[in-house]
Amino acid sequence: MMLLQLNNLFKWVQSGGQRIFLLKDINLDVEEGEFISIMGPSGSGKSTLLNVIGMLDNFDEGEYHFLGESVHNLKEKYRANLYKEYIGFVFQSYHLLDDLTVKENLEMPLLYKKFKASERKAMVADMLDRFNIVGKKDLFPVQLSGGQQQLVGIARALISNPKLLLADEPTGNLNSQQGEEIMDLFKQLNNEGVTIIQVTHSEKNAAYGSRIINLLDGRMI
């Protein structure tokens, strides 16, 4: 089943009367259950593409269909709802909220989705269990190692059962052993049915995926 579709998508910035293209004529179909890796040199538009897919960023031309909805025609509010419902994000630098404990970081998306307190509790406990971080639940991010922080970041992205997990160089800040663990986890999640799109520099990590997309100067090659 088709999860999302990008047709002739362009994104640019205006600079001194010139258009500088960040994304140029992107056409991409993603089926549910795929594990895609986006690769390319720095500045080729990998993260921009990921942000556009994740609806964190706008585009200037083209069409974007997500689960049959035309994202390019949607109002901000509906887009946010769509996003909240189906997409989870994982970052290179984890982006956990420093002032919140592990447990509270996990709970945050559920709060925004207005789950009841009892449900939230159960889901958080489940996640802590699944990622084997029950013992860390009352610690603050600074008290964790990088790998552990990224685990929490992934757990937070997954807690509301997204269909699509977007990861922007998830292992970029980790050592190789931690990186491998994370990639194994991704593989396992993918096997469980989560669609994953990751941005990566590493051929090794890209190999975990089922398909590789190469970008150069905003263009798919």
Binding site: L56, A80, F89, H95, M108, Y112
Partner: peptide, 16 residues
């Protein structure tokens, strides 16, 4: 700003 960014990516609306 970073906090706002994170919160928005994990589903916070502007009003919240």
């Amino acid at each position: 700003a970073k906090e706002v960014g994170i919160r928005k990516t994990i589903g916070s609306g502007k009003n919240q």
